[in-house]
Design a binder for these strands. Structure first.
Lengths: 352, 352
DNA sequence: GTGAAAGCGCTAACAG
DNA sequence: CTGTTAGCGCTTTCAC
């Protein structure tokens, strides 16, 4: 069952072994090294030699063996990203949209994205093995909802990584990061409602232990105050779930009678829509609602849900840019990058 | 245990070079091969030797270098999956849910998932390079909405792959596949409405060139006919978009007055909800609606959208099982696997 | 500009 | 059971 002399045989479903540098060299009548140069440093070759080699490469359908190249260059051209299951019932498909963008942006920089699972209870699981086995060149760290132990851990190990999300809890961190200005987003949403003559605008946000949540909330309160509008009695902090948003909206409606809601997530905003629905109030006409993240839910719900949209495509591009900087020789450290969100205006915030 | 004399230096952000087999061997006082055996064939070692080696491995934090192992074993333990951007405004986050499951299922089988981008206009782009550079051991092919040129292409190259989706257009294919019985799902939805005493149940489906769409449609018509219910004038085929679903539902409502809708997707079902909304009809109470795919939209839309749910976790497990079979020596070909969907019942199909 | 030699870290085959 | 030998396919010196 072993490979004899020159005959590459098909092992199970695996096709004949692909051509190697040596095969190309033989066909082109040059040495292996010259083929390598043709691939990696074409400017070193004489024009006609180069063409001859390139023809041989094309004829054979040669592509350098990744494992061999990785071993030699000590680089895998892979970026690892932990991909934990989104909890169901949450409108938060944000990460998925980001992954798509990341895959595309990485491809342009010559990188592939390696997804790995991790024990949800251990924020650091999965990284260690990939790092020690040099399976990836760097990581993209995303799940920074509550603090960011991964960043601290990776920094300690001097592993190259870029975070999507600021190091809220560790301001002394020096790793590259890319983030979206949540406060600006919430302010954008609030201003949008204020311009439509709303004055009692409520905030439905996340538990206080979420840095992101507090950031977004600050945008709401800043926008309100800058227009001289009161905020007291108009805010609440709950779990990120439809039911929580519904309850919170019901309570706020009963107690303070807001005419507008700005929410920390589309999930919460959907909860607000539920509450309006129950009371026979129509979104947009009676009460304005703005969500956050511009999920698919916001886009297809009847009437449409106005929502703050994060520029995830740009985030991915910046992440890859930072990654490329980290991995360059010498490394070029890219400082933190903060991007501005936009507002996708739909029926839930407009009188029809 | 720290490194001796020739201390590897830190290159930029790259940490000290990780320990190798030789380092472990030296520390444990055995040969490199013994360490390799301790990792790959522990049963070959004497208990005390094994323990000594394992201690050394733990002390050093050793993990086999992937590239070297890949080169030697001609396997990367990576499965490639093309990840094309989902079109926005579509409730179809199905693939994302699948990817999550796939990552988890793969991890248990010792595989990581490599995502790659591809030119959306060329269904085969991206595969070729990965295959020739032996960067992945196999592929998971998913985007089989309209036919499946990838499968044919990969089969021709004898590349190992498993498809999520049946080879509708190439029944002569012999590759492994896993799919969900769409006809059964639609029948499930239809029966659900029939049991609630609906008799005029409409079908809102996809363009006729979609095999999947026709399959699902057949489940509806079969269920209707088996109860002696008429189907004529109750079906339409449109683009998979909210607006199309809305128009189609409006037309059907005006012309045939159905009291129930079964849709080929949640996106279309959302369109139906729009149409009901416009006419002041309440989903569930006045008209029943069932979607397909149980997207997050179905879960969070006010009232909830009843939807056919594909068992994606199981699909992923079966895909990995088939993959493992393909990659085993000798390969064990797994035949096609067809899984049954379930129905997630929510407000849109129940009188409240 | 091109070629020859060396070796990245690992594991398959064999010898002891 | 353990150690020795060889080489996966590639790139990095360094001669020519």
């Amino acid at each position: 069952m072993s490979r004899t002399a020159d005959e590459p045989l098909s092992l199970g479903t695996i096709p004949v072994s692909p051509p190697t540098l040596a095969d190309v060299a033989e066909l082109a009548g040059v040495s292996r090294q010259t083929v390598s140069n043709a691939v990696n440093n074409p400017e070193l070759l004489r024009a006609d030699t180069l063409r001859r080699v390139q023809n041989a490469i094309a004829d054979l359908g040669y592509s350098p063996n990744r494992a061999a190249r990785n071993l030699r260059t000590r680089a895998s051209h892979l970026v690892g990203m932990r991909f934990t299951p989104a909890q169901e019932g949450t409108a938060n498909a944000l990460m998925d949209r980001f992954v798509h963008s990341l895959v595309e942006a990485s491809a342009e920089a010559g990188y592939h994205v390696l997804l790995f699972a991790g024990d949800p209870t251990d924020p650091v699981s999965g990284y260690d093995d990939l790092l020690r086995s040099t399976a990836v060149d760097a990581f993209v760290v995303t799940d920074t909802f509550l603090g960011n132990p991964q960043a601290t851990w990776l920094e300690l190990r001097r592993a190259p990584f870029v975070a999507f999300g600021r190091p809220w809890d560790t301001p002394e961190s020096t790793h590259p990061w890319v983030d979206v200005d949540g406060a600006a987003g919430a302010a954008l949403a609030t201003d949008h409602l204020i311009e439509a003559d709303h004055t009692k605008i409520a905030w439905v946000g996340w538990r206080k232990d979420s840095w992101i949540g507090e950031d977004r909330r600050s945008g709401w309160s800043r926008a309100m105050r800058s227009r001289g509008l009161v905020t007291s009695g108009l805010a609440c902090r709950v779990e990120d779930a439809v039911a929580s948003g519904r309850e919170a909206a019901g309570r706020l409606l009963d107690e303070s009678g807001p005419t507008g809601f700005v929410c920390a997530s589309d999930t919460l905003a959907m909860g607000v829509l539920h509450a309006l629905d129950e009371r026979g109030l129509q979104p947009g006409r009676d009460v304005a609602v703005v969500g956050f993240d511009d999920s698919q839910v916001a886009q297809v719900v009847p009437g449409g849900l106005t929502s703050v949209r994060q520029p995830l495509e740009d985030v991915a591009v910046e992440v890859v840019r930072a990654l490329a900087g980290l991995l360059a020789t010498p490394p070029k450290m890219v400082p933190g990058v903060l991007l501005e969100p936009t507002l996708a205006v739909r029926g839930s915030s407009q009188r029809r």
